[in-house]
Design a protein around this nucleic acid. Structure first.
Lengths: 177, 177
DNA sequence: AGAAAACAGTTCAGCCACTGAAGTAAATGC
DNA sequence: GCATTTACTTCAGTGGCTGAACTGTTTTCT
């Protein structure tokens, strides 16, 4: 599933203006322009709103268990041991950044590094017992009060899913990068 | 429409771990966990994917015309002159940040500050002629190849909108903050 | 009316997520 | 068996963004 890390976009071009302090990604969610097509505009706005709510829910949950978002995300991803490079690909960030995240989680005793048995250059991250426990708590809270989606009934959810699939199957290549 | 600026979440809590370098927001879009409900999981994933595609489209368009995302967003918001505080509320960032954005756009001649006639503490940002032109170009390109939504036919769009409305009307308070 | 409080914007210091380059060690490929 | 690629680390730097302190203006309270 495609996503963009914070700087992945800004890499592409710096903009006319130098030395600008910028409002970040979140801003894009708040498009209020005179869309030529009001229905389309509302759909876009609501899609953004929904995804923001999901993000907010995730972050709140992470904070609840004492983690930051990327820590939580990494923890969740480590259901099975993963090589650091794989984690970087998953997070869509530079490997060097994973080093830092792993450092912090290791320092707290939530994971440890072990050499990859198949490639001695590589290291695999695996959860400690404490890490497993924290991961379980995190997931439990994440689903405890699932947002938005949970208010739709079964047929509505099926319908929504079908629509999203349609939208993405056509423009699929673009969406998934 | 609710959105979160990058740090608005991290303000809430710092996480157990100190000095951690973190993978940012974008990461959240990439949840691959053993959701108890596979259909719900797919919906969430696809919602994220769609919103990411929208963001990417917006950013690409901004870059095309030589702007960064927040510059573009501010420009778009300035169809009519707006007080800086209003812009900050719109961007959901600190007023001091709007100062910097306005500085950069003013330096490039895309907008200027004028005192608010009704409150001499306040300043209103308004587009110059060049700013207007750039805004027009930006919007034109933004709709030139509208992403995703455009692949749905009329009835599908109506249906999607209806579902999104339902989802948000129930959880509305949370979603819109 | 006059003092106190609230408020709009600016300046500035600093944080933190993230990148990119340089370095080390191990694997791969002719 | 040497050159190239690959996996991680280290480190410096960038840029978005916050928060506190300050100026000047408006509102509020008595």
């Amino acid at each position: 599933m495609a996503c963009l890390t914070r700087h992945s976009g800004n890499r592409a071009g710096r903009g006319i203006v130098q030395g600008v302090e910028q409002a970040g990604w979140g801003v894009v969610a708040d498009i209020r322009i005179e869309w030529p097509d009001p229905e389309g505009q509302e759909i876009v706005e609501r899609l953004f709103a929904v995804s923001m709510a999901l993000r907010a829910h995730f972050e709140e949950t992470a904070t609840d268990v004492g983690l930051t978002v990327p820590q939580a995300h990494t923890l969740i991803h480590l259901q099975e041991p993963q090589r650091m490079g794989e984690v970087a690909a998953h997070l869509r960030c530079e490997p060097s950044h994973v080093t830092a995240i792993a450092d912090s989680l290791e320092r707290c005793g939530f994971l440890r590094r072990e050499p990859d048995p198949e490639d001695r250059r590589a290291k695999r991250l695996l959860l400690t017992h404490r890490g497993q426990q924290l991961r379980d708590r995190l997931l439990a809270r994440l689903f405890e009060r699932a947002p938005i989606i949970s208010v739709l009934d079964a047929s509505q959810r099926t319908e929504l899913l079908s629509l999203l699939r349609t939208a993405q199957s056509v423009a699929g290549a673009d969406i998934r990068r």
